[in-house]
Structure formats: structure tokens, C-alpha cells
Amino acid sequence: MQNGRTSAALRHLTLGHLKETLRGLERAEGFRAKTGQAALPFGIAALDSLWPEGGLPRGALHEIAGASADAGGFAAATAFTASIAGRLGAGRPNAPVLWCARGHELYGPGLAGVGLAAQRLIVAEARNDKDLLAAMEEGLRAGVLAAVVGEVERIDLTASRRLQLAAEKTGCTALVLRRPGKRATPAPITAASRWRVGPAPGSGAQDFYQIPAARPWRLELIRARCGAHGSWIVEAPDAQGHLRLPALLADRSLGAPVWQNVA
């Protein structure tokens, strides 16, 4: 009996020790201690409840791509990235966002309209993906930025791992925005979460001469480190970068799996 109690206590001790060790290993814990914030909440319960941190983890690598490999998908992915980056920068004064771009298509007024203000944006144009990844890593390691965005077409496992490590070290969030490329399926990368964003299909336009003010998106979480995945219909971010649920669906119960149709 005594023996059994010892082993139970031992097991309890070991389990507690393991949990403690795991928490110590968790990057988020160390970062939470430093900044008090380990995650960026979306403000939508269904999304936030997926993560134990209560939102998109900071100090990690996230991948965002367009649902379709065309300009429309890429623009939606750009806006989604900008809204996240803008809100990441909003919490910390003087912490700008470095946007490593290819080409000069970024349009400030549009980005400001989804929550990334010009004061918080620094653009770095790179000629190729290699330079771009190096610039991203330098930005992540500097530790003065809120987020680093990179418009990458080709990135492999090693490069993404480097970015992930750099992000963990400084608590700066890395956002990889996939450029639509020639290859149909991009190579897999290490990422804390992988998103696909695109215009929602079949949002019924009643009148040819009127565009609905609300912009429905289909937001798809393909993979997350916490194991969650799903797809949602949301409205494009407002000027503060907040996503919203479409009014039609918000009337329903948030807990109901009606619109969290797990793919």
C-alpha cells in the first residue's frame, strides 16, 4: 500500500515535473513573461478558442496564401496579412512592421483601410526570394519590430525553420505571404498556422449596379500547431483591422457548428 502510494506520488511528481518542463520549453511562456501578451485575439470566439493562448500566437511564423492562385486571392491574402500586422503593431508604440515586398504594387491607402497605417509600415523591396528571406530574418532578429511580412514565392523547410527560430527568439511575429507561383502546390513549410483566404463564393449580388458594402471572405485554417483546422465565412477587416462575422450568420448561436463546418 505504501508502495502504491509512493508510486502514485512519484507519478504525480513526474507528471508535474514534465508539465513544468514543457511549459518552460514552450516559447510562448517565456515571451508572455516579457510582454504580457502571447497572442493576438481575433475578437471572434470561434477563432480565438482554437488556441490555448486565446488568439494567434505571437513570436511565431504564420503562413497566409490566397485561396486561388490569381490576383484576387493574392489581394485578399495581402489584406488579411496587413490587418494582422497592423494590429500586432498597434499594441506597441513605435514598433513598426517591416514588409519585405517583391515589386512595388503595395498601395498605402488600401493598406491603411484594413488597419495597417502608414506610420507603422516600412517597405523593403527585394529582387529575389533569397534576398527577401535574408531581409526577413534580419528584421526578425533586430527585435524592434512588431511583425515582419515577406511576400515569398519559394521557401523551403530549412528557410522557414530559420525564420521560426528567429521569431521565437525576439517575440517578433513572422508572416509569410505566399505569392502565387507557377507551381501548383507550394513546398510545405514549418508554420504555427497556415491560412487560405479568398473571396467567398456565391455571395449573392442582387443588383448589377451595386456592390455590397460588406466583403465576405472564406477564411480557411489549413493547419495549426494546436491541431485545429476549419473554415469560416467572415467579413473583410475594417479600418482597425478587425474581422467580423457576417450579420446573417451572427444572428445564430456562436457555438453551433453551422458555420464552423470543419473541412
Binding site: N94, P96, L98, L106, G108, P109, L111, A118, L121, I122, V123, A124, E125, A126, R127, D131, A134, A135, E138, G139, A142, G143, V144, L145
Partner: peptide, 26 residues
């Protein structure tokens, strides 16, 4: 802080070219 940010943008400009690092001013 401001100094560190200036150093970062200097390094990026040094690597990518002086005109490649910029802000979008209204």
C-alpha cells in the same frame, strides 16, 4: 529604440539598395 530601428533600416538599405527601403508617405 529609434536608433536600433535606424540601424536595421541601414542594414537593409545596405543590402538591398538605398532606394529599396522606404516608407509610404501620404
Amino acid at each position: 529604440h529609434a536608433g536600433d530601428l535606424a540601424q536595421l533600416t541601414d542594414h537593409l538599405a545596405n543590402r538591398l539598395g538605398e532606394s529599396a527601403v522606404y516608407r509610404l508617405a501620404p
